[in-house]
């Protein structure tokens, strides 16, 4: 005789916009935004480093603000606009095909990427900061990235990347 499975919870309809595309999804209320992004939409740029809200590798922008996708239920994102690392370059108007967002470029050029597991979350946290404050000082950058764990870099070159991105975004410095 078969064991009976616990009955699966009822699903709900969630409408959300991800990287500019509208989706209507049927999800169980307990599903996190991270699960929906990674498993339903195939957007694996946001990572699950802990699932507890402590590491920041799952950071995405919800209506422009950084959120922990592992702690955000998909139903909480109802009607919201989500930006993941995959959609970041498309936010640049008239970009060349294949071109990166200036923050992504800066992480590459300033050697702010080692293993890269923290990088998507780091970059989105940096975008949220620079959208609000285009010219943050070093202490402010470190504070704004304070919830993003990086185990590889010691943060020095990540902070330098954010500074470089700020200079490039303000037009103070042009990429060679």
């Amino acid at each position: 005789m078969n064991e009976a499975r616990k009955s699966p919870p009822k699903k709900m309809v969630v409408e959300l916009e991800v990287n500019g595309t509208r989706h209507e999804l049927l999800v169980e209320p307990r599903r996190t935004l991270l699960e929906v992004l990674r498993e339903e939409l195939g957007l694996t740029g946001a990572k699950e480093g802990c699932g507890l809200g402590a590491c920041g590798t799952c950071t995405v922008l919800m209506d422009g603000r950084p959120v922990r996708a592992c702690l955000t239920l998909a139903v909480e994102a109802q009607g919201a606009s989500i930006l993941t690392v995959e959609g970041l370059a498309d936010t640049v108007a008239d970009r060349e095909p294949g071109a990166l967002h200036p923050i992504q470029e800066a992480f590459v050029d300033a050697h702010g990427v080692q293993c890269g597991f923290c990088t998507p979350g780091m970059i989105l946290a940096a975008k949220a900061l620079l959208d609000e404050e285009p010219d943050p000082d070093e202490a402010r950058i470190r504070e704004a990235l304070g919830g993003q764990v990086c185990r590889c870099t010691g943060y020095t070159k990540i902070v330098e990347a954010v500074k470089l991105a700020a200079r490039r975004l303000s037009g103070e410095e042009v990429k060679a």
């Binding site: 957007l43 694996t44 740029g45 946001a46 993941t84 690392v85 995959e86 970041l88 370059a89 990166l100 992504q104 470029e105 992480f107 590459v108 050029d109 050697h111 990427v113 293993c115 890269g116 990088t119 998507p120 970059i123």
Partner: peptide, 14 residues
Amino acid sequence: PRRDARLKATGEAR
């Protein structure tokens, strides 16, 4: 710049 950095900065690295 490291070759793999672009893939990692765009979320393409698997």
